[in-house]
Amino acid sequence: MSDGGLVSLFGELRPALLRYLMARGASADEAEDILQDIHMKMLADHIGPVSQARAYLYSMTNNHFLMHRRTADRRTRREEDWSEINGGRDGEVDERPSVETELIAREQLAILQRVLDELPERSRIIFRRFRIDGEPQRRIAEELGISVSAVEKHLARAYEAITLARRRWDEDRPDRRHLTGERNRHAI
């Protein structure tokens, strides 16, 4: 089989992927839709043999879940915005990022910059290589002569600082919308 058996593996893994989606908070219908999308996509795309095929299918499922949520959020937001502005033509929505969004972006950038500046230098550099340059952990570990789990600890420190900063920012401004505005807008 040209897909290296990926489609049939998908069939086998389907119940597990369904459980995964529901654990992530998808409704049964939503989960079925997502798996159906993935199935169609796999049949349509020319997919070569994949190493770590189950990891591949899980990560594909996760990405589709995120895309699905984003689309649903966008739809909700459009409806909300529509009811708020209540004056556009033909239900058309103003897509323009507002001055406020721009300010929020700047503020968030300043916070992120400060958080990264406050990290120990090594954590900061490892974070850059992993998250900005996209290098795999193993390579970072090899080049720095440390273990993969040490790299992981540095990364965890960076992510902890980032989540803390965002949490604080949210608490200060419960009314503000995030830059992406897409997070946690759905009911769980």
Partner: peptide
């Protein structure tokens, strides 16, 4: 996951000090 996605558009603009 949401935190990490949210910093995506900001990352090209941060300066990694060394």
């Amino acid at each position: 996951e949401a935190d990490d996605l949210a910093i995506d558009p900001l990352l090209p603009l941060v300066v990694i000090r060394e």
